[in-house]
Amino acid sequence: MLFYFNDSSALVQASAWTPTHSHHWLRKYPNLIAQKQIYKSNQVWVSDITYIQIKENFAYLSLLTDAYSRKILGHYLSENLSREGPIEALKMAIRRKGQSYVTHHSDRGIQYCCKDYVDILNNSFIKISMTENGSPYENAIAERVNGILKHEFACNQAFGSFTVAKNFIDRAIKNYNGIRPHMSCSYLTPNIAHETEETITRKWKNYYKEKVK
């Protein structure tokens, strides 16, 4: 499959709000994947944090998704917005990546810019890419996956406890990877798309370039 990263169809239908803080002094990195051609698994990973409601409070789900196959490779539910959640999701993904040379793309949140997170990326020979102007188009696939989990797999409900939420989300992600076909992956599920060596073709047209003219 050969496509450009700014596909408008990847935008989530839900709110684009994300619980990250990008106004900080830590180093921010350029966007390396704008107009990048993505043609295989473990070429580009996209990362994001979304909120999960637990009674009157929130927990925070860190997700790391393969941009080609749409497979969620790493996830972690945290009770706060510390660096722990993204780091644990990243470690889970790294354990699966093998010898691939990956580009990691995220927003400019402090969790992704902190030294511990950047050190893990550098030590794993993973290139660092970040959004530059705050547009949801710059991290569209990550936003889209957030929306699928919430609206198709019922992760937008108010859970009764952190443990209930964690167990439910673990099952939802397993089901998402195993049973949810994507038009962008020739109607393959993420698990199958991630492992296939055949060329994957999209089943929809990219209208984004026409809209922004």
Rank of each mutant, 00 (worst) to 15 (best):
N123C: 04
V12H: 14
A193Y: 01
K211W: 12
M130F: 11
S186M: 10
L73H: 04
Y112R: 02
N156L: 11
S47P: 10
D66E: 01
I38A: 02
I169A: 05
A67D: 05
Y4G: 08
H24M: 10
N191K: 14
I179R: 03
M183N: 08
Y101R: 14
K166D: 13
S161C: 09
S129R: 08
Q13L: 12
L61Y: 09
G98W: 06
G85M: 05
L81Y: 00
V102L: 09
L64M: 05
E197L: 09
R83I: 15
R27C: 13
A165C: 05
I110D: 09
F168A: 06
H21M: 06
A89G: 01
W204N: 08
G109Q: 05
L90F: 04
T201R: 11
E143G: 10
G178Q: 15
K28R: 10
P86V: 07
Y68P: 00
M183V: 12
G74H: 02
Q157T: 11
R83D: 14
R202H: 14
E84M: 12
Y208V: 01
N156C: 06
L81Q: 13
G85W: 07
K71G: 03
D7R: 15
K55S: 10
E152A: 02
I169M: 04
G178W: 07
K55C: 11
A140D: 05
H21P: 01
N57Y: 14
L77Y: 03
A193Q: 00
W17H: 14
I120S: 02
G160W: 03
S78I: 03
K203S: 09
D48G: 07
T18P: 04
D48S: 10
K203R: 10
M130P: 06
Y76W: 13
D66I: 00
C114E: 09
